[in-house]
Design a protein around this nucleic acid. Structure first.
Length: 292
DNA sequence: ACATCAGGCAAGGATGCGGG
DNA sequence: CCCGCATCCTTGCCTGATGT
């Protein structure tokens, strides 16, 4: 058995391309082909279906993949363990937006540390643009940001946070069946402005009305917005993560508004192309558990 | 010295896509 | 529909490193 062949298999599957995997592994593409073929000979089965330009995992490939990932994972952990005894501890520098830092990071990092107890984590908070720049300057290894499209950056959908209207404990909307955007517009509103494209849908919901919404406070900080609602200064559209504890304690209540149903705030995990794939895989797995 | 193996280069076949 | 081009993977051959 050869760890390099398994590594090639994991990377080819991850990138869906022999070429891309070769680039990442600093090999020529024929070498990757050779590694996959060697592994296929060793396992006595085809791992990929080559359908013209596209490749797909075969059934056997799908069955083998979790074992291959496990081997890679264990190897990486072992390597880190040995390295940590002789060199400085490994550090992972994570960049995150303020809201991710406040609400997602505390949920993610304990689980991540359980997987990589040897890794020290450094958290850097900033805006999406600022974090993208830091990633390019190698000041951070990975980032949790809003949507980013850039040729040298790999972006993964990490977490989708539904946006709902939240009201305080004894607000009249708690007893209403179907609250309309028209009724919302007549209530004192706290407007949390986060600048994301998805957020524009909340704006547009008010545009069709014949009068403007009663926005009494416009704030750029979700924590401030939430506290204003808790102090009954108004009601507010907020991402679910921001108010999770208050909803659990019964201090805030979500109200479904059909005009803005399905609106959510997307958090993406970004890294430079091909870097830190194992950490990314682990974090994406942790991200999936958050959604449940 | 020879065998073996990994990896690179170049050529070739297959496929996808856009334009005429 | 056909053609040209780009892209992707495979194959054959060569080279260099390493083991026997």
């Amino acid at each position: 058995m050869n760890i390099e062949n398994i590594e090639a298999f994991v990377y080819v599957n991850h990138y869906g391309s022999f070429n891309k995997a070769a680039e990442i592994l600093f090999l020529s593409q024929p070498s990757v082909t050779a590694r996959i073929q060697t592994l296929e000979r060793e396992l006595d089965c085809r791992l990929f279906d080559r359908l013209g330009k596209q490749i797909h995992l075969t059934e056997k490939g799908k069955q083998f993949l979790p074992y291959a990932q496990q081997i890679m994972h264990t190897f990486q952990k072992g390597k880190l363990h040995i390295q940590n005894r002789t060199s400085v501890p490994h550090e992972l520098r994570i960049g995150a937006t303020v809201s991710v830092s406040n609400y997602l990071i505390p949920e993610i990092l304990p689980a991540f540390r359980r997987e990589y107890p040897q890794i020290n984590i450094k958290l850097i908070t900033g805006t999406t643009d600022c974090l993208v720049e830091k990633l390019h300057n190698s000041e951070i290894d990975i980032g949790f940001v809003r949507k980013v499209v850039h040729p040298t950056i790999q972006s993964y959908k990490f977490y989708e946070d539904p946006i709902r209207l939240y009201v305080y404990e004894d607000h009249p909307f708690n007893d209403s069946e179907d609250v309309t955007i028209e009724e919302v517009s007549r209530q004192p509103l706290v407007f949390f402005e986060c600048g994301s494209l998805d957020w524009m849908r909340v704006h547009r919901a008010f545009e069709n009305l014949d009068h403007p919404p009663d926005i009494q406070y416009q704030v750029d900080n979700s924590e401030t917005a939430k506290k204003l609602v808790l102090r009954r200064a108004g009601i507010c559209f907020l991402p679910e993560l921001v108010v999770r504890h208050e909803v659990r304690e019964g201090r805030l209540h979500p109200i479904e508004i059909s005009e803005v149903s399905g609106v959510s705030l997307q958090t993406n995990l970004i890294a430079m192309q091909g870097e830190n794939p194992l950490f990314i895989d682990s974090l994406l797995k942790i991200g999936k558990t958050l959604a449940n």
